[in-house]
Design a protein around this nucleic acid. Structure first.
Length: 438
RNA sequence: GGAGAUAUGGCAGAGCGGUAAUGCAGCGGACUCGAAAUCCGCCGAACCGAUGUAGAGUCGGCGCCGGGGUUCGAAUCCCCGUGUCUCCUCCA
């Protein structure tokens, strides 16, 4: 949610910044016109209410003094006023909803440092990273050896990924991990959670179904209802599309103590997404699923600290890739490519040798006070004043895509997979092949 | 799933149709070399509107779990929800 007072007082600037976020021209004008209507109605009804309160006082006093005549007259007057109030209140409720519905559709404004552009072609690469010693593994931008198989093929060959039966049981974009595949997934997220705990994040296990209020508070609703799985007969519930929803809402409607900030939390969870309209051929295998595991990081910070914390969180995500020795780069998303609630986003993209390109594996965002306004998360400073916190979220990392990246980057000519060193204590073995696949 | 109880300020806790007691905590002051104790005063979240601003302030609305209703007037009466607690039931 944007600050309506900012929109009112900085109309031209706000309009330009909304245009940068691909919001149609005229949307802000409409909102502000309705906002003005709303405020003038409120003013009108509040004046009547003030009068009613005043006269009601007099009625009470008159009754105490047994002055029935003037009480009766005042009551008759107030019946009229009361009717007017009722009518105006209805108008206020209606315009309130209209204004609010428009506000809820507006994305966050981008930080001035974000490159302006309508789509992902305006994203800017920040840095690339590749392990010093690849030990014969394919390097970024090098020629891919002919024997190298896409992760979904090598996974099926080894019998550790079962897409066919996943489709039988649940439809397209579902799968079973089998034996060493399931264990690899488990090794990876345990490793990730341990790393984040060491970095100061508190691990949470969260609900996987949330109310629609929660989805609204983090910005998924109302705009992206079609992307979510809604369940429940009596009460509408939604399967979380990311642990971010459960993590940020953990502190919804709360006033935090200044001493709690910054607060770091993390969770592993499945993420459920309809992926409506996302059909495409380069999304085979583990890249785009209706259900996938992800380790998510969330921070609540003071406003003045949030951009430092964004850099740190990005480093936390990079650390995972570096320890796994996977080549990646970091890009800063343009105004047109960022998520709805974000003011600045870094994406981490990992190298996929069979596709000869980087693919997204993590997205780290500073939402500033956008979610905090919707979710009512504030903190009290030393002077007792209230401020909205800033919220940040980042994947650390998408687990399924990490499996995919390992199956490609650590693949050997004989069809085996070397387990990254750092995962061996978690996995228990140093490779997967036809003899070691359970 | 069934039955009952309960929901008021940071906390405790009255009020049960005339517009939120009181205590503790907090803030300011007096007393004191200082502190404690005592005394005096202030303080009812959040939110919205007007005015105004360096910050503030002032006025009004709203405000007693949420949403409706009755009434000139609702914390109080009526209806529909929700959370929490206890007992039973069911489970992992």
């Amino acid at each position: 949610m944007l600050d309506i007072k900012y929109l009112r007082n900085n109309r031209d600037e706000a309009n330009q910044r909304l245009l940068d976020r691909n919001v149609a021209d005229g949307v802000l004008d409409q909102l502000l016109a309705d906002d003005e209507k709303r405020r003038s109605l409120i003013k009108e009804v509040e004046q009547l209410k003030a009068k009613r309160n005043q006269v009601s006082d007099q009625i009470g006093a008159a009754k105490r003094e047994k002055d029935d005549v003037s009480a009766k007259k005042a009551i008759a007057d107030m019946q009229l006023v009361s009717d007017q109030i009722k009518d105006l209140d209805q108008q206020v409720t209606a315009i309130d909803k209209i204004v609010h519905d428009q506000e809820a559709q507006l994305p966050n404004l981008a930080d001035p440092r974000v490159p302006v552009g309508p789509d992902d072609s305006y994203n800017v690469e920040q840095r690339t990273w590749e392990p010093a010693n690849l030990s014969g593994r394919p390097a970024a931008f090098s020629k891919t050896p002919d024997w190298l198989k896409p992760h979904y093929d090598i996974g099926e060959d080894l019998g550790i990924l079962d897409f066919e039966r996943g489709a039988k049981v649940s439809g397209a974009r579902f799968l079973y991990y089998v034996g060493a595949g399931a264990r690899l997934e488990r090794a990876i997220y345990n490793f990730m959670l341990d790393e984040h705990r060491r970095e100061g994040y508190t691990e949470l296990l969260t609900p996987y179904m949330v109310t629609n209020e929660s989805m609204y508070a983090t910005g998924q609703f109302p705009k992206f209802v079609d992307d979510a799985y809604e369940v429940g007969k009596d009460q509408a519930m939604t399967m979380i599309p990311t642990a971010e929803v459960a993590l940020v809402n953990w502190r919804r409607d709360e006033i935090m103590d200044e001493s709690e900030l910054p607060l770091y939390i993390t969770a592993l969870s499945p993420a459920f997404r309809q992926e409506a309209g996302a059909a495409g051929k380069d999304t085979r295998g583990l890249i785009r699923l209706h259900q996938f595991n992800k380790v998510e990081m969330v921070k609540f910070t003071k406003p003045e600290d949030s951009y430092d914390e964004l850099e740190k969180m990005t480093v936390n995500a990079e650390n995972i890739l570096q320890k796994l020795e996977l080549p990646y780069h970091v890009i800063r998303l343009s105004t047109g490519d960022m998520g709805f609630g974000s003011a600045m986003t870094y994406d981490l993209e990992v190298w996929f040798p069979t596709q000869n390109k980087y693919r997204e594996i993590s997205s780290v965002s500073n939402d500033e006070d956008f979610q905090a306004r919707r979710a009512h998360i504030q903190y009290r400073d030393g002077d007792g004043r209230l401020h909205f916190v800033h919220t940040l979220n980042g994947s650390g990392l998408a687990v399924g895509r990490t499996v995919a990246a390992i199956l490609e980057n650590y693949q050997n000519e004989d069809g085996s997979i070397t387990i990254p060193k750092v995962l061996r204590p978690y996995f228990g073995e140093d490779k997967i092949d036809q003899e070691h696949r359970n």
